[in-house]
Nucleic acid binder design. Structure first.
Length: 602
RNA sequence: GGGGACGUAGUUCAGUUGGUUAGAACGCUGCCCUGUCACGGCAGAGGCCGCGGGUUCGAGUCCCGUCGUCCCCGCCA
């Protein structure tokens, strides 16, 4: 038999009571976390998001209440009125903050019962993720999830407060907007009023925030949902939250100062002190040292070791004469078995003609002098794992790197090595111990190239986006040497994760036109895609720039989680499915007809 | 689009070279227990071995397909 709440009013949360409250009457409400039944004496742990308090039901002093306590099962929702009592010294529970007291129940109301859940919030081993997502409301009751969501809240509030104090306005922008063919795939929303036409959910509020600068808002921010219909990863969800901001009259450094400021505030809210300014690194340097544009600084950089080998050694090994030889050092890995060495091969995703030497021991037998030099140059201790990555003699004729410092074949080697470096670091994290909680290595990666060449489409693409400003000194190379043009674009990176990306934008119509031209867009094409924006640029646009950071990723790292799903209340699976509500689903013929949509069947 | 891992009681897992009736722990149900807090004790219920084919005298185990979850590559201006 269930009871009504009536006018019973909660006086304390389940984590609140302390020794100093002894003697008070308290009213607690929450879930039955566990029941320990001794026959004539029953203990009930009642739980809410703040903690757990022990309720005592004694048959001798209150037989009716004791009988009712016997009906309780896990996850029933109850209310209890009782006296807060100091526990006997030998019965104090030091494991919980409320462990010095207990509530002697005088009244017990069963507010709701619960079916036996597929798993319990108090379980120590996690069920598989499919089940957690299907029964997300139970999963979210778990202490760890409650903490993550609370952390997320605190970080977001701290960042809001900081930006507001710095004069940024939080301004909302539309979710139903216009599809722009560049970039990620759009999620589309059909229009009923205009059959055959579609809105798109924003991949980011990019053009709106630039228009807000044109509108004179000077400093804008928004903690905003973005949508991208691309394949998922542990750190990628189809809808995710960005801390988006834009400001007028900035140099890149002005944007960086703001980001360093709000990250300091956000991390402080998460319980960590970080010290800006963050180090800075050129994109080209990041590629040469780490093989990736989001270096994890917690582990050693590459060591170039071509000069350690005699030319005839390299020839014997089938190493290309013009390409770098780089050593990847992973600390303290120790002896590897034959099987473990073979696994390195499968971890190596070769790009272009990149070539791997995973068995350094064997190289040491054949080339003792050269390998000793490699060890020395890489600063390797005896237990450190060394693998070499280079270009094979089949890499073909070297393409000129042009003005850029890294040729395509070199890039292939660096990129392959960069992925292997990260994979090795993850696999042997238990051995090298370089991934410590609370160790936050921030980095600004700067001076990205303006354009990337798309081999399949035989044209230049914007590396960041087409509204990114080139370096003032590189304007003259837009036509003559697009590859050499540096963008005023920057990424903020934390422990090998890209937290955010931004740039100084183009504010001049003449330069914007040049960029579109370099991207192979005709005047007419540019006008049809971005006409409203190009027109806005003509009415007095101030210089402006900004950035957007992934809130989910920030909280994930702060929480020490390996997946965004741990910090998003209702996330989607790798196939972009919500297992709790079972979305997406087909819709009725009537709905489709109203929207003027036909679904092709095949 | 490609590669890899996994799928066995409600849950987490074990299950040998294919061989009797598929096990354990936790949870669940009942009984006992007045100081536990991952309580304890006794008894019990609970299985489409993801699904569909195939090989075999015989399949949880081998093969093919399929579905689902996870990780990675491509993709993510």
């Amino acid at each position: 038999m269930l009871d009504f709440l009536g006018d019973l009013r909660r006086t304390h949360t389940c984590g609140a009571l302390r020794a100093s409250d002894a003697g008070q009457t308290a009213v607690l409400m929450g879930w039955v976390n566990r029941r320990r039944d001794f026959g004539n004496l029953v203990f009930i742990d009642v739980r809410d998001r703040t903690g757990i308090t022990q309720i005592v039901c004694d048959k001798e002093s209150n037989p009716a209440l004791h009988a009712k306590a016997g009906e309780l099962r896990n996850e029933y929702v109850i209310a209890t009125v009782g006296k807060v009592k100091l526990r006997e010294p030998n019965t104090i529970n030091k494991n919980i903050p409320t462990g010095e007291v207990e509530l002697i129940a005088e009244e017990l109301r069963i507010l709701n019962e619960a079916k036996q859940p597929p798993f319990l919030p108090s379980d120590t081993v996690l069920p598989n993720e499919e089940l957690r997502l299907q029964y997300r409301y139970i999963d979210l009751r778990r202490d760890a999830m409650q903490r993550n969501i609370e952390l997320r809240h605190k970080v977001a509030i701290a960042i809001r407060d900081y930006l507001s104090a710095q004069g940024f306005f939080e301004i909302e922008t539309p979710f139903m907007t216009r599809s722009t063919p560049e970039g990620a795939r759009d999620y589309l929303v059909p229009s009923r009023v205009q059959p055959g036409s579609f809105y798109a959910l924003p991949q980011s509020p990019q053009l709106f925030k630039q228009i807000l600068m044109i509108s004179g808002f000077d400093r804008y921010f928004q903690i905003v949902r973005c949508f991208r219909d691309e394949d998922l990863r542990a750190d990628r969800q189809p809808e995710f939250t960005q801390i988006d901001l834009e400001m007028s009259y900035p140099q890149p450094e002005r944007v960086w100062e703001v980001v360093e400021g709000f990250l300091t505030a956000g991390f402080k809210a998460g319980g960590y002190e970080i010290k800006p300014p963050f180090p800075r690194m050129d994109y080209d340097e990041a590629i040469r040292l780490y093989g990736i544009d989001k270096p994890d600084l917690r582990l050693p950089a590459f060591t170039p070791v071509r000069d350690c080998f005699a030319p005839e050694n390299l020839e014997t090994l089938g190493v290309h004469p013009g390409l770098p030889v780089i050593a990847i050092r992973t600390p303290k890995v120790g002896e590897l078995s034959r099987k473990e060495r073979d696994e390195i091969k499968t971890m190596f995703h070769t790009k272009g003609g990149a070539k791997l030497f995973e068995d350094f021991k064997r190289l040491e037998k054949s080339f003792p002098d050269a390998t000793a030099k490699v060890r020395e140059k890489a600063g390797a201790a005896a237990a450190d794992l060394i693998v070499l990555v280079t270009g094979s003699t089949q890499s073909g004729e070297l393409k000129s790197p042009g003005v850029r410092k890294v040729s395509p074949q070199e890039l292939a080697i660096y990129a392959s090595a960069g992925l292997l470096r990260v994979a090795l670091a993850q696999k042997y994290s238990g051995r090298h111990g370089c991934f410590q909680p609370g160790d936050f290595r921030f980095l600004w990666v700067t001076n990205f190239p303006m354009f990337e060449y798309d081999e399949t489409e035989q044209r230049w693409n914007a590396a960041h986006h087409p509204f990114t400003s080139p370096h003032e000194q590189d304007m003259d190379k837009l036509e003559s040497d697009p590859a050499a043009v540096r963008a005023l674009a920057y990424d903020v990176v934390l422990n090998g994760t890209e937290l955010g990306s931004g740039s100084i934008r183009i504010h001049r119509q003449d330069i914007q036109r040049k960029i579109f031209h370099a991207l192979g867009l005709t005047e007419a094409e540019a006008k049809s895609r971005f006409g409203f924006f190009l027109e806005a640029l003509e009415y007095g646009t101030p210089p402006h720039g900004g950035i957007a950071l992934g809130l989910d990723r920030i909280v994930m790292i702060l929480a020490g989680a390996d997946s965004l799903r741990e910090v998003i209340p209702f996330p989607k699976t790798a196939r972009a499915v919500d297992l709790m509500v079972d979305a997406p689903t087909p819709v009725s013929e009537a709905q489709l007809k109203e929207l003027g949509i036909q679904v092709s069947k095949n």
